[in-house]
Design a protein around this nucleic acid. Structure first.
Lengths: 325, 325
DNA sequence: ATGAAAGCGCTAACAG
DNA sequence: CTGTTAGCGCTTTCAT
């Protein structure tokens, strides 16, 4: 920056003002500064700037790139944050980077808030972090009382799926769950509650799975080897449904003729023309907006008590459900 | 940090050394400092640290979260970079954030190098950036002479796919391309060259597409409406193949009985048990390693002339190719 | 409209 | 083994 100032023959503060687009410097000066900056390949140093301002204007996001629905959420988070003057610092969970490390990294970059998309269970340290930093758990429930939570009512969503299938005439409805992955317990609970409500508790049939196509494929394999098969399946999410359906279709099972399938999330896979999946829709854009709101409300309005927001999900009926044969 | 120092009754530099795990402070001091830091929720401010050190130790990565193969590359990049003491700053391209802005953002965070996974065509400004910053284009070719490039020989990969299909007895081999998306031109070129080499230039049949399942589904639709159908198809990537195959299977076309399909990338979708896709493998781990090498070699060894590395891809024959009926 | 000086949190160099 | 001093690039306040 000194280089630019020297080159143009003005002081550093003047350059600073020009780079930030503030009123003050004359049109003439402005033009010369921008030209010089361009020639010298100068761009303001964000960290230095924010060190001085004592603000980073960054929201940390912890997520898994492998889950399409989370990717959608992150894309929405980008625009919501930008609309309010904030930027996102992405912290991706990968096989080599577990949650504690990622959170620590984001904190040490002085992000002003944390949006968590994929909390691993048993996260003691999170409470400690949240005590110093606004944090919101997005799209999955969490035990920690101090954390804000923005999510869909997954239990209700799954109950809607059960209702829909029962209305179609199904009784043997199975659920491929996601074991102990985030949010899986609540979806399982919703399934059990839904079955019970229709007097079908005896038919409850939970097949262990995960939020992945692989898990769906494995569940399909298990179903194919059985003698008595359910007439409908509710999966842990859309990806799992895709794996399940693809495997079944290849084995000659007709969906929805022989078996109805309901997914969860209404992520982009659900809308694929060949899949045309009946699923439970979560409003990604709205969830993202509420998550950013929650963090900024703590940050800018100083709220301190935990906020729990639960959105109503909505069943979207497409082509993978039909009355049982 | 002053707080911690005051609390323990030592000076700031001592705290600094403890936090960085350096030799010097006594075991006693170390223990007390760490305790105090924990109680106060103190973590070192990375930007301040790096401002002082004049290093960010960060590599910027520009990518799209929607492409599974790129996600895999990023995961590998994380571990390669970590192994050499660097961290990644992710800059995701989304519908609301185009390349120039993302690059600018990364640069202003003072990342020391740039790894580009999804260069939009016609990127004049990139050359300017690369003049000031080591940059490598990963997994897709680019015109710019000054940029380093680490990629697979896609033309060769597609030729291998053609060879394989011809050996099986196919002659009417079509290609679903990815229009003007990055790398699509070269794959198209490889297809044309492969067909020509076998005297099949007359059978060349390029169906417009994209690197997505949607595009694969659309291509399938187009094939189904045709009277004369090819006996084999090579798609732009694995995702496109998935969309294509899923659509065809649902329309009653047997793969590979009626139609053989070859994908590209060998991303995680290709290995899905129900898909079991014949595809052209790119070595993601090795590509990531070479990309990090290229950047760090400019950074630490001061290389200045452009480096172009091209890896040989390898055809992986699985279950979606067979002799024509 | 522009410049001089101070300081954000941290670390390198040197003193003790 | 620990403390003192200075300065990274930037912005803010105050003075010109």
């Amino acid at each position: 920056m000194s280089d630019v100032a020297a080159r143009v023959g003005v002081s550093r503060p003047t350059v600073s003002m020009v780079m930030r687009g503030l009123e003050g410097p004359s049109e003439e000066t402005r033009r010369k500064v921008l030209l010089a900056a361009d020639e010298l390949g100068y761009a303001p140093d964000t960290s230095a700037r924010l060190l001085r301002r004592q603000r980073s204007l960054q929201l940390g996001v912890v997520f898994t790139m492998r889950e399409p629905f989370h990717v959608e959420l992150v894309e929405h988070l980008y625009s919501c944050a930008a609309a309010r003057g904030y930027d996102l610092a992405l912290g991706a969970l990968t096989p080599t980077r577990e949650q504690d490390r990622v959170v620590e990294e984001l904190v040490s970059h002085r992000c002003e808030g944390l949006i968590l998309l994929d909390t691993e269970s048993g996260t003691a340290p999170l409470g400690a972090v949240a005590a110093h930093l606004p944090a919101v758990q997005l799209a999955c429930p969490v035990a920690d009382k101090s954390l804000d939570v923005v999510r869909s009512d997954d239990a209700k969503g799954i109950r809607q799926a059960v209702d829909h299938l029962v209305e179609l005439g199904h009784r043997a409805i199975a659920h491929v769950d996601a074991g102990n992955r985030p949010g899986a317990a609540e979806r399982r609970r919703g399934y059990r509650a839904g079955m019970k409500r229709h007097g079908l508790a005896g038919h409850a049939d939970i097949i262990p799975g995960d939020y992945t196509r692989e898990a769906g494929a494995a569940a399909a394999q298990q179903l194919l080897e059985r003698t008595g098969r359910p007439t409908a399946v509710i999966t842990a999410n859309d990806d799992c449904a895709l794996g399940l359906i693809d495997s079944l279709v290849r084995a000659g099972v007709d969906v929805p003729g022989d078996l109805s399938v309901v997914g969860y999330d209404d992520s982009s896979v659900a809308r694929l023309p060949f899949l045309n999946l009946t699923t439970v829709r979560q409003d990604a854009a709205r969830l993202a907006e509420l998550a950013v709101d929650a963090v900024l409300d703590r940050l800018e309005a100083g709220r301190t008590e935990a906020r729990k927001v639960t959105l109503a999900p909505r069943l979207v009926v497409r082509g993978t459900t039909a009355p049982p044969a």
